[in-house]
Design a binder for these strands. Structure first.
Lengths: 338, 338
DNA sequence: GATCTATAATGAATCGATTCAACCCGCCGA
DNA sequence: TCGGCGGGTTGAATCGATTCATTATAGATC
């Protein structure tokens, strides 16, 4: 049925080794032969079998990437950055969506391991470190993205979430708000915990300021809407006067829910700031203040580190890259329209 | 270095064939042996090599999906639907991003073919049919998504774009607008052409109505912003009084650009309707009217068809599934706030 | 002409899981 | 006692590209 190197070799009247060389080391083959083999390939419609190639090579030319939510533009951009860098080196990126579920995360890691991927990028949920240790022990390096590690055994590329949380809360305080709320979850996500910690630090510095913590089950528009409904249904006096949402999806959901029936005005009654600065934040009902992260750069850099580690092997020095977040002020916290 | 079936067989004191059977046909092996082999697998940390498996099997257990823009939530949802159905049958989905570029599209199709994927789902750009014919001839079935085909050789799952375009334009006309503009591109995309055709049909039915066509180079927020800047910079009298954008990303970009410096009011000066009804449309500066498509269902159904075709082989009857679009009215065309 | 070098080309061995024809062995029925 | 049956198990053959030690050829040098 399918055409293989042997068929090509026969038609071009050369050996299989030569066909292989034409595809992988054309400089080792005379130009005339190259041409003849390529003609044969074309006329037979030969497509090389990657499985056989991989089997021999011992590992694939793919990288695995596990994200928390593929529908979140932040991760879409991160993935794009990763893909770009990978493609420059001839690698492919397989994207798996954990949906913040440990079992799905595990499933993709298993899959990637069976595929003998060159390495794994992961935005981990909960404590995936033991599993990653296992991978590493079997020769598959891993880099954590969007999440720092104290663990010296792994490289990571992330943004200083504590600093970002501080920036956000400090900004809310600077515009005179005192009864802040933090909306986010799950608390299994380090990003969320760190952003909250930063916010708490900022609040502690200002006398009379408080920070209520409203935990959500995920970082989605839906979860934001639910939290927003709860807040809207409170007596006006019990509502916070500012909300820091752990990401922009939550913030968008909050925004929709709060403004329903014109119950709450943003930023009048409640100032709102998100996190990630996704493209849609600027186009929101009330353009959303946010904390910008270099999403594409994170992916790009992570692949860089991963490939270096795969190359250098055991004597690779793990690196913890930490980018700094940036405050973007828009109308949702009283900034002028852009 | 790596552990293989032979090692497992040795430790469990059975043959390699038995190890394989434990993994693939446990019913053919006595319970005691199964247990012994599984112990050996666990204690050695054996992970089966998918490349070897695939080589023997002749094809992988993956499906390829080529989308026009992975950052577009419409395709993110479509991919999720596809993944869900695929996972139910034990398949994996590899997602490739063509970015509306023929060469990237070709690259991913090549890649998928080398990987011997079970089948391909594709939202094609331009005329990919010949290439798909080639794939099919070599045994890889393909299903077109988000795009109908007259071609009987392929299944397709799409939404009636002509009807959707008609719905959108008719709605704009029904609220009294007469000087419509269609913003979209590239015209190599059948979706865009069909939506435009539907709009033209609606406009032709109303005396005194006109439709200007403003072509963009892609269906992105950026392209929308550029088109919006152009329109904003026109003399007020030369601006259309309603715009139908070929998708929501364009519409969001248009919205941002038009409202800059409060130059143009939406829907006052210009009514605006998008297409796809992505989650962010509802949360836009001015909540966006749109044409809703069952994105997740499209992906789900497409995988369904693809797997059936892969199963049945040559005697499979190709099916053209056509969903109907739905008009969603919001403030950007004067609908009441929800 | 003999010797050496550089360049091309060869093809058997290899990667690891799966398959399948052959085999083993205990047991039943004749 | 023997043939037959069938659940378990075996292990060589297989998938297809790549590698590498070996061989062949042409050209250069003395």
């Amino acid at each position: 049925m399918s055409v293989n190197v042997r068929d090509v070799a026969a038609l071009a009247a050369v050996s299989v080794g030569t066909v292989s060389n034409v595809m992988n080391h054309p400089d080792k083959v005379s130009p005339i032969t190259v041409a003849r083999v390529q003609d044969a390939i074309k006329s037979l419609g030969f497509v090389r079998n990657d499985a056989a190639r991989q089997l021999r090579a011992g590992h694939s030319t793919s990288l695995g990437l596990v994200v928390l939510d593929a529908a979140n533009p932040f991760f879409a951009e991160l993935a794009r950055g990763a893909e770009n860098r990978a493609m420059e080196e001839g690698f492919t990126v397989l994207v798996g969506n954990s949906d913040e579920k440990p079992e799905r995360e595990a499933l993709y890691l298993d899959l990637f391991e069976e595929q003998r991927v060159h390495g794994v990028l992961i935005a981990p949920f909960g404590d995936a470190i033991p599993r990653l240790e296992q991978l590493k022990a079997r020769g598959t390096p891993a880099v954590l993205v969007d999440r720092g590690v104290d663990h010296p055994g792994f490289s990571s590329v992330s943004v200083d979430d504590e600093a970002g949380g501080y920036l956000a809360a400090e900004h809310l305080l600077s515009i005179g708000r005192r009864r802040l709320a933090f909306v986010g979850g799950s608390m299994q996500l380090r990003q969320v915990v760190d952003r909250l910690a930063g916010a708490q630090r900022a609040v502690a510095e200002v006398a009379g300021a408080s920070l209520e913590v409203i935990e959500t089950d995920s970082l989605t528009v839906r979860a934001g809407r639910e939290a927003g409904d709860d807040i809207r249904n409170r007596a006006a006096a019990d509502r916070p006067d500012a909300i820091f949402a752990a990401n922009d999806l939550l913030a968008m959901g909050l925004l929709q829910a709060l403004m329903k029936n014109a119950t709450v005005s943003v930023p009048g009654d409640i100032a709102l700031i998100g996190y990630d600065d996704i493209a849609f934040a600027e186009a929101a009902v009330v353009p959303l203040s946010s904390i910008r992260q270099p999403s594409e750069l994170i992916g790009y850099t992570a692949v860089q580190l991963l490939l270096r580690e795969a190359e250098d092997g055991a004597d690779f020095v793990h690196e913890q890259v930490l980018f700094q977040p940036e405050l973007i002020v828009r109308e949702s916290t009283g900034g002028r329209a852009s």
